[in-house]
Design a protein around this nucleic acid. Sequence first.
DNA 1: CCAGACGTTGTT
DNA 2: GTCTGG
DNA 3: CCAGACGTTGTT
DNA 4: GTCTGG
Length: 204
Amino acid sequence: MCGRFQLKISTSLLARIFNAVSTVENFETRGEIFPSNDSPVLINDPQQANSRRLGLMKWGFQFSGSKKLIINARSETIAEKPLFKDSFHQRRCLIPAQAFYEWSGPSGNKIKHQIRGENEEIFALAGLYKKFDFENEDSWRFTIITTEANEEIAEIHDRMPVIITKDDISSWLDPKGEKTELKSLLQPFAGRLSIEPPPAQRLF
DNA sequence: CCAGACGTTGTT
DNA sequence: GTCTGG
DNA sequence: CCAGACGTTGTT
DNA sequence: GTCTGG
């Protein structure tokens, strides 16, 4: 899954890297991003085709009347679940992250692993976004899509966030994207990762 | 119509 | 809030 | 996501 | 157990 990630970079640089127009003036980065925090999110400009925007959104969908934040969406079911369906069709986004975190070990004695790209590339995590109008808030929120862990991550966890590679960014954000093609992008990461600390050694 | 679910992960 | 099931 | 708090009154 | 803060 993905319950925390890292981002420590100016939004203007981030916008340049992802070829987007930034709507964020001065995002105070905390470095580590937690559920409920605001973080920059990349979307396709709804007003203008092929124009990317970078804007702040809050991490976590929510049911009205519930306090629980829904910070992940299973890739296997996003096309059917009522909470995610319309977002999957019309409001897909990417969440820039320089690392994400997974935990291993028993509760009370958990080990936190930081996962980065092998050459420090900035991840584009697949996400969905949606507007929420309750709790005296009018807020745009995002959630991060998960898939099965790849071989490396499986050592510490059975799920991981979907990472969209540079070449697939336009396809994922394309408002005219075909459902089948979109789903085919939701795969466990095929490249190499760096995990720190590394997974515990297997004895056998 | 009303009641109840609506989500994921991890833990048991 | 909105959808589903009864 | 995890870690840590979870409380009030009165006195200094 | 549940809520809050980071």
